[in-house]
Amino acid sequence: MTSDDVLLSEATDRVDSIELTAWAHRLSPGMCPPDPCRSGTAAFDVPAKDHNREAQKMSKVYTGASTSIDGYVSGPDFSGFDKLFAWYEAGDVAFTVPTGAMTVHLTPASAAYFGGLIQATGALVVGRKLYDFTNGWGGQHPMGVHTVVLTHRPLEDNEHFTFVSGGIEEAVAVAQKHAGDKGVGLNSGEIARQAIDAGLVDEIFLDLVPVILGGGTPFFAPGKGYELEGPISVVESSSVTHLRYKVRYGVDAQDGTAAAGLRGGVHES
Score class of each variant (00 low, 15 high):
39 S>W: 06
186 L>Q: 10
166 G>A: 12
116 G>A: 14
8 L>Q: 14
24 A>N: 08
218 P>T: 09
141 H>C: 03
44 F>W: 15
114 F>P: 01
178 H>K: 15
33 P>G: 01
128 R>V: 01
220 F>I: 05
212 I>W: 10
261 G>H: 13
109 A>F: 12
89 E>G: 12
48 A>F: 07
238 S>P: 01
255 D>E: 13
258 A>I: 09
146 H>K: 09
70 D>H: 12
179 A>C: 04
106 L>W: 09
177 K>R: 14
52 N>R: 15
143 M>G: 14
67 T>C: 15
218 P>G: 00
240 V>D: 00
244 R>Q: 10
90 A>K: 03
237 S>P: 08
121 T>D: 00
39 S>V: 13
3 S>R: 13
104 V>W: 06
165 S>P: 08
213 L>T: 10
101 A>F: 03
192 A>K: 04
224 K>W: 01
108 P>K: 10
210 P>K: 08
61 V>S: 12
118 I>G: 12
5 D>L: 09
136 G>A: 05
244 R>G: 02
61 V>N: 05
104 V>N: 01
217 T>R: 02
231 P>K: 11
151 T>I: 00
76 P>Y: 07
160 H>M: 05
90 A>S: 15
214 G>A: 10
182 K>C: 05
58 M>N: 11
199 G>L: 07
4 D>L: 11
269 S>K: 04
21 T>K: 03
214 G>F: 08
41 T>N: 09
243 L>G: 03
232 I>R: 09
192 A>N: 06
24 A>T: 11
135 N>L: 14
209 V>F: 05
36 P>S: 08
136 G>W: 07
195 A>C: 12
120 A>V: 07
126 V>P: 02
256 G>R: 14
118 I>W: 11
167 G>Y: 12
65 A>Q: 14
189 G>Q: 06
225 G>F: 01
68 S>I: 12
181 D>Y: 07
212 I>P: 00
160 H>G: 01
256 G>S: 13
172 V>C: 09
196 I>A: 08
217 T>A: 05
257 T>L: 13
66 S>Y: 08
59 S>V: 12
33 P>H: 11
72 Y>L: 15
264 G>V: 05
174 V>E: 06
9 S>T: 13
73 V>N: 03
101 A>I: 11
265 G>P: 15
39 S>Y: 09
231 P>Q: 03
235 V>C: 14
227 E>L: 13
27 L>S: 12
36 P>L: 06
90 A>I: 02
37 C>D: 11
89 E>V: 09
55 A>N: 13
13 D>G: 13
176 Q>D: 07
27 L>M: 11
237 S>D: 15
112 A>Y: 14
46 V>Q: 02
111 A>M: 10
145 V>N: 02
98 P>Q: 08
154 P>H: 03
178 H>A: 15
134 T>V: 03
261 G>E: 08
104 V>C: 10
200 L>R: 00
14 R>V: 12
30 G>N: 05
97 V>P: 02
134 T>N: 08
50 D>L: 13
241 T>S: 15
165 S>E: 11
117 L>T: 15
173 A>T: 15
189 G>H: 04
141 H>M: 11
208 L>H: 05
171 A>E: 00
240 V>G: 01
15 V>N: 04
196 I>Y: 00
23 W>Q: 08
76 P>V: 13
262 L>D: 09
73 V>Y: 06
99 T>C: 04
221 A>C: 08
247 V>L: 04
76 P>R: 05
114 F>T: 02
34 P>K: 02
85 F>H: 13
37 C>I: 06
117 L>Y: 04
177 K>Y: 09
